[in-house]
Nucleic acid binder design. Structure first.
Length: 107
DNA sequence: CGTTTGACGGTCC
DNA sequence: CGGACCGCCAAAC
């Protein structure tokens, strides 16, 4: 039974360390199965997957909370990150370069 | 079964 | 520095 693309995205997303963030492109590159768009698309489905996928730890390559609008409330993503110690300013991750987690290098 | 859409990314101008 | 454009590939229409 091969895992579907979405399941693999969930798996990698769940591996993102606490207090760290990753990007769609990094995950897509690690899985080498598709493009960054697929990751966003997969995470979108995560809401109906029943699994607790920390989608809030995944941002775009600029560190922007591009997916915040897809959460139950637009501010939820930011608040969740702040709860984990990730500072958000102007809809962006502070120190994104340092907090960015690349599965291909750190996993 | 062709077209459009998308939580993106990189390049080009 | 910002905006336009193309590529990625699965799903919805």
């Amino acid at each position: 039974m091969e895992k579907s693309y979405v399941e693999q995205v969930y798996e990698v997303t769940r591996l993102i360390p606490y207090g760290r963030v990753s990007s769609y492109g990094a995950i897509a590159n690690y899985l080498s199965l598709g493009s960054a768009r697929m990751v966003g698309w997969a995470l979108n489905k995560s809401f109906s997957s029943g699994k607790a996928v920390p989608a809030h730890r995944v941002v775009n390559r600029k560190g922007e909370l591009s997916g915040s609008g897809h959460f139950p409330t637009p501010t939820m993503m930011q608040e969740l990150l702040e709860q984990e110690g990730v500072a958000i300013e102007h809809h962006r991750v502070v120190n994104f370069k340092e907090l960015h987690w690349n599965p291909s290098e750190e996993l």
